[in-house]
Design a protein around this nucleic acid. Sequence first.
DNA 1: ATGTGGGCAAACAGCCGACAA
DNA 2: TTGTCGGCTGTTTGCCCACAT
Lengths: 430, 430
Amino acid sequence: LAAVGFGQQLPEGEKRCLNSELWHACAGPLVSLPTVGSRVVYFAQGHSEQVAASTNKEVDAHTPNYPSLPPQLICQLHNVTMHADAETDEVYAQMTLQPLNSEEQKEAFLPADLGAPNKQPTNYFCKTLTASDTSTHGGFSVPRRAAEKVFPPLDFTQQPPCQELIARDLHDNEWKFRHIFRGQPKRHLLTTGWSVFVSAKKLVAGDSVLFIWNEKNQLLIGIRHANRPQTVMPSSVLSSESMHLGLLAAAAHAAATNSRFIIFYNPRACPSEFVIPLAKYIKAVYHTRVSIGMRFRMLFETEESSVRCYMGTITGIGDLDPARWPNSHWRSVKVGWDESTAGERQPRVSLWEIEPLTTFPIYPSQFPRLKRPWPPGLPAFNGMKEEDLGMNSPLMWFRGNPCDRGFSSLNFAGLNGQNWLQSPDIYQAM
Amino acid sequence: LAAVGFGQQLPEGEKRCLNSELWHACAGPLVSLPTVGSRVVYFAQGHSEQVAASTNKEVDAHTPNYPSLPPQLICQLHNVTMHADAETDEVYAQMTLQPLNSEEQKEAFLPADLGAPNKQPTNYFCKTLTASDTSTHGGFSVPRRAAEKVFPPLDFTQQPPCQELIARDLHDNEWKFRHIFRGQPKRHLLTTGWSVFVSAKKLVAGDSVLFIWNEKNQLLIGIRHANRPQTVMPSSVLSSESMHLGLLAAAAHAAATNSRFIIFYNPRACPSEFVIPLAKYIKAVYHTRVSIGMRFRMLFETEESSVRCYMGTITGIGDLDPARWPNSHWRSVKVGWDESTAGERQPRVSLWEIEPLTTFPIYPSQFPRLKRPWPPGLPAFNGMKEEDLGMNSPLMWFRGNPCDRGFSSLNFAGLNGQNWLQSPDIYQAM
DNA sequence: ATGTGGGCAAACAGCCGACAA
DNA sequence: TTGTCGGCTGTTTGCCCACAT
């Protein structure tokens, strides 16, 4: 319960180590956290979107902005800790970022640490709860393949075969369940203990529960609440406008003084990740050709917690918010989606979220060249292998296409040669 | 559900009018809201304390401050709306403030509006719940005097006498209770309907429930949760440091541009009120003599929701936070309390919270005079009657002592002649 | 293979006065 | 005057299977 101060790093001993595989399982297959010690790009715009989504309030047009705060900040990622809300079990991550000055940006940066990859656990299952599962009338019906894969085998000499399962959640609480194989036809059920869990976690039909059997032969249990109307944030403390200003002020101050700041990333509340590995950002923005009319694909999470690809076409390129955030790469690509059910997919994406399909030739003459195709504050990039780029996100499951390598001529039309990656102006108000 | 924008005033029609007397009853007898249209003093320091209390995190010593933001801002209070958290029923108020520039401060300000005084309702009772009250085993035992005072009389020709009570809460929800007079000896009880209320409001022994019978012959019901360890704010959205910065940035920006800003005041989470009627502030700071060793009294809320006086002695006068908030009147008075059980009473108070007792003579020579006893940005003050000062707080239940009137020579030692009440410097970062 | 519903027993909720503080 | 308890129902919980999809 030690308070973590501004700019302080949490001592190693006090780092409350949530179970990483359970955290990632709850966060979903598309969520990846950048490696500690690596360089990242922080987008205040995206952070602001997270606050807007959590408070259910859009940023007001009259809210002032910080001109000294650039749309993207190159930072050293000093610390990442995984957390879960004590009440709702909502997962979130706390990151300590430190903006780099132009000197530091010039230093060659190390290949990303070979930290544990954020892969989803192998021995797990995730089930969306039915009305019967959540009713007080009965227990939980375990899908047969799931029970056989992740639960310890039952002793079928008993009649009926049953055992006690003990599972731990993100807060390291124990939950005991009676696992029995009975009925006509036979099936796996969780009976005693199940309803306590349902009411404690406030689960309703449509929410999901997931079980993991890990390498240490421990059973882990996690939940994912369905996208309910909204977790209306208790705004009884601070107005959403103040929160918005606070996030900007914290980043602007950190940028001006090159000091550390702390942010929270809430993957299931947040429309898009806003702390991106620097290598992934550079690859997408400087090494990838995109143009209007180009086809692309992008990954989405399915209802069953797996991943699928959606296809679309780029319909425009330009600033999402020219007044407040000019020359930002955040959601700079306007897209149309192939499938008519695409109503819920966002009409704007960022370059690092998509994989352009370049199966047909591109005529370079269509795209004006930048005066400064490679910003001066960045190290040379050739000679790095793709595996070194710290891109352990599922997006990397794509095979790289031929356009990914070498120095492409430009990022996209409409950008001037402004010095985006330089350190920001001195923040004058502090 | 219309989003209230920054600097926008909520249209009259959309103002969700919570029942004012119920709100005040839940807020407690010491809480008063300044009158709409009046002038107030806003203390960012106190606002910051509210955030710290809500997030359970002290402000870190490295958190930067806004030098352009003065410790106290004189504001026009444009709007006050009462709210209650949908989940916890926690009451809070939203206020729209507009800092006044020095020109506006010079204009004579109107006597405070004769708005509805914030007096506690007369026909009400408040009971702290016992284990039996909250147990599922039984109902609610109504104190006899309370039942006779606020509930409609029972028809004692019935055997047993009983009736159905319908009470409305802050969200205008209806709650039905069976009110019966039975047992040996006879007593008033709420039976059917009570346990539904207890579980819906998550009441436990030690929490309080209150009933009001108002002038419109309506029965109102409210709750007050005991000071549980803490309502640990879901910090999964924004770090407490960012919240702190946000509050400062919002105030600083508003001060620099003389534009409106919105704050939330959460009386039961907040250590002290931080939006003070200007007249009350001026009276306490400029018209009242205080000195070290002086005795004073101050009001506190009792466990039974009434008010009582505690006595103490002033032990010091000076800045609470000289580095961050020099020359602030916020909690500028160090005090010692008479009663040994005073461990929970704060060691620092603000001048407007206390009533100094001047039954013995003071030697003016002990206190250095200010070079500028009356700041230039303020109107002359004489000729106003005390009732016009907008001090409808219970603190005004004190009788004014002779020192309250006329221009006393000073406020307190250690203050220089700095121009506190002038408009702040231009805020440079926006 | 698995969601839902009827049957049934055990547990709990909830109304009552007795008793004591 | 009022907090807690034992006694006594009525309702709910929760385990079992049958049956349907």
